[in-house]
Amino acid sequence: MNINLTLIGQSIAFAIFVWFCVKYVWPPITQAMAARQKKIADGLAASDRAERDLELAQEKATQELREAKNEAASLIEQANKRANQIVEASKDDARKEGERLIEQAKAEIEQERHQAREALRKEIATFAVSGAEKILETSVDANKHSEMLDKLAAEL
């Protein structure tokens, strides 16, 4: 319990420890702590930003999806319309073609009927002439009576 040189020794030791702490201990520790604080703050800010980015991206994605859907819908509609048009057009064509064919057939039928009638007429004319010859027992000069025969034939 005596006061002695220990007092001074203790003061000197204290001074040396404080000096060492000021110079070599405190600065690196506090710097590292401050740097870590900044790093963490930056990290948090970055994560906030990323979250916001993600939100924006999601929004954009939904919008694009919606647009794509709309586009697809309009494409399908167009295609349907076009298909209908094509169907309509081909129906039209087919009808026209059918009509044409019918017309043609009718015409052919008419023609053939005509020919048949002509042939029949000629035959009848011949029959008539030969009949008349038999009746008259005289030959009929076909050339002489052709006019009359033609008239007859036309009446048939």
Binding site: F17, F20, C21, Y24, V25, W26, P27, P28, I29, Q31, A32, M33, A35, R36, K39
Partner: peptide, 13 residues
């Protein structure tokens, strides 16, 4: 001082 200096040297973020 040894402990704290040791920690200070290895202090990282």
């Amino acid at each position: 001082l040894t402990l704290f200096r040791f920690a200070a040297k290895r202090a990282s973020t």
